[in-house]
Design a protein around this nucleic acid. Structure first.
Lengths: 190, 190
DNA sequence: GTCTATAATTTGATAGAC
DNA sequence: GTCTATCAAATTATAGAC
């Protein structure tokens, strides 16, 4: 396991593959990602990609699980003693604004969620886990108000839906307005 | 052109194919729809589907254009003399709630929008046209307030994003809350 | 780990009979 | 309009050499 990532157990090349797969799925969906294309992306042959990830369904699950972990790390733990609710929300808004503006890509969870009815079960399960994790984080971020989970789902819905509009219409600035509206939810009455 | 739909020029079998293709795309995306599967859906062979729609890209464009027309017809013209803003919004909310609840499918425009970065240009163009049409309708529905288009984009974002959550997590009731929040937008200050 | 070679299947698409 | 037959290409995946 030379050059491995000790925090996840993936080798350096496996991580290259995961990153390439993430971009391909976020661009065109699960079916639009092929071993051949991934191989070209990372400079090896398709059969060698199978060495790292024997089955496509498990590769897909690995990609979305890694994405869930990456986003969790970027958001950090919820700490309402140190940080305001609004600043917590701002973190997620920043993540999504940046990727729409810089790469023109939607959220991986959004793409796989949209396709979840047709995905191999391990991938669909990992997509569900992504959303339950994100909803859990944001529910905590909204504090102890009784409508926290409802607000969290609403906020995530706003961001995911607007991302699709922003990428489709090539209007990344829509994410700024969406972020503002999400932050205004903090002032909503219970 | 026996048994044809004189309003669109499509034969009865062509419409069967379009309907089957719509469902397949809304379930798993554009790449998840194949001529073979469509043929089985409508009881003919794949080569016969090619008779009706020679190329997949043009079939995809036809599906989303038909969807745009169907939704426009379901929403009806905007008439703020006869109908309130809220009742206009309710129409779209009802459409989306019904399909999530009854078929567990997201909006076709949402799916193709998500994949638009990777779609054949005719399909991507038709997906953009869907959203500009829907945004136009809803902007008109919000009346002559200066933030009408911003509100329209926000409302559509809410509905599309929540549909993905509702279908992924198999929680169709989320669409009810989303509809309520959309209708509350009417009371927002400019 | 990566390669070549290959298998088995699926895919979009065409030609031509009926 | 639908069929059979066929094609070329792409797909996921495996076996075995290096």
């Amino acid at each position: 396991m030379a050059m491995s990532d000790y925090s996840t157990g993936y080798s350096a090349k496996a991580i290259e593959i995961l990153e390439a797969a993430e971009i391909r799925i976020r661009r065109g969906g699960f079916e639009a990602m092929s071993y051949r294309d991934l191989a070209a992306d990372v400079g090896i042959k398709a059969a060698s990609v199978h060495y790292h990830f024997p089955q496509k369904a498990l590769l897909g699950a690995a990609v979305i699980n890694r994405y869930t972990e990456k986003l969790s790390k970027a958001l950090g733990p919820v700490d309402l003693q140190q940080t305001t609710v609004t600043e917590h929300l701002q973190r997620l808004c920043n993540c999504y604004l940046a990727t729409v503006r810089n790469e023109g890509l939607i959220c991986l969870g959004c793409m796989l969620g949209a396709e979840s009815r047709d995905l191999p079960e391990p991938v669909a399960a990992a997509a569900r886990h992504f959303f339950t994790t994100l909803i859990g984080w944001m529910t905590a971020a909204f504090g102890d108000r009784t409508d926290a989970e409802s607000l969290a789902i609403h906020a995530i819905g706003i961001l995911q839906g607007t991302m699709i509009l922003a990428v489709t219409l090539e209007r990344p600035e829509l994410m700024i307005a969406a972020g503002d509206r999400v932050k205004q939810l903090v002032m909503s009455s219970e």
